[in-house]
Design a protein around this nucleic acid. Structure first.
Length: 139
DNA sequence: GCCAACGTTGGC
DNA sequence: GCCAACGTTGGC
């Protein structure tokens, strides 16, 4: 199983919206960046990812699961863009803020820290474990 | 609201 | 194929 991180502006698509969709899940559409798309193409059903609120909040708030592998993005006719479907698994008991992540030397290599603009990114197993610990939840 | 960083586009 | 111009993202 692989681990990922999905970024979203709460005003566009927030954790509350994702939760409201429940097990039905939702397309992670609107990605128009090749790197991010390529990561989505690598995803497999059952992979897990953190849901990150960008902009004002800047914190990991929930965990999602990949429920459909990459397929054409329904929000565009451009065949270049694919996306996966994800569903909410659980809210984090304690959101993990970007400040906390930056303050932890073990997380210094995260793409979130190094390349703040990539909206879909991989997370290593060790980072996943540390972040779950900070969030007060089981990996 | 600003601006740095980055990715994409398009002219040459 | 290079690179300048432009647009977007997201932290501050």
């Amino acid at each position: 199983m692989n681990y990922w991180l999905f970024k979203s502006e709460p005003s566009t698509w927030g954790w509350d919206d994702q939760l409201a969709k429940g097990d039905e899940g939702e397309e992670w559409d609107g990605v128009r960046n090749y790197q991010a798309r390529n990561f989505m193409r690598q995803m497999e059903i059952g992979d897990r990812g953190f849901f990150y609120h960008s902009q004002k909040e800047r914190a990991l708030v929930g965990i999602v699961e990949v429920m459909a592998e990459a397929h054409p993005d329904s929000t565009t006719d451009d065949p270049r863009w694919d996306c996966v479907d994800v569903k909410a698994v659980k809210s984090l008991p304690r959101p993990v803020t970007l400040d906390e992540i930056k303050a932890d030397a073990r997380l210094a290599e995260m793409i979130l820290v190094k390349n703040s603009r990539l909206s879909v990114q991989p997370v290593t197993e060790e980072e996943w474990r540390i972040l779950c610990e900070l969030a007060g939840t089981d990996p």
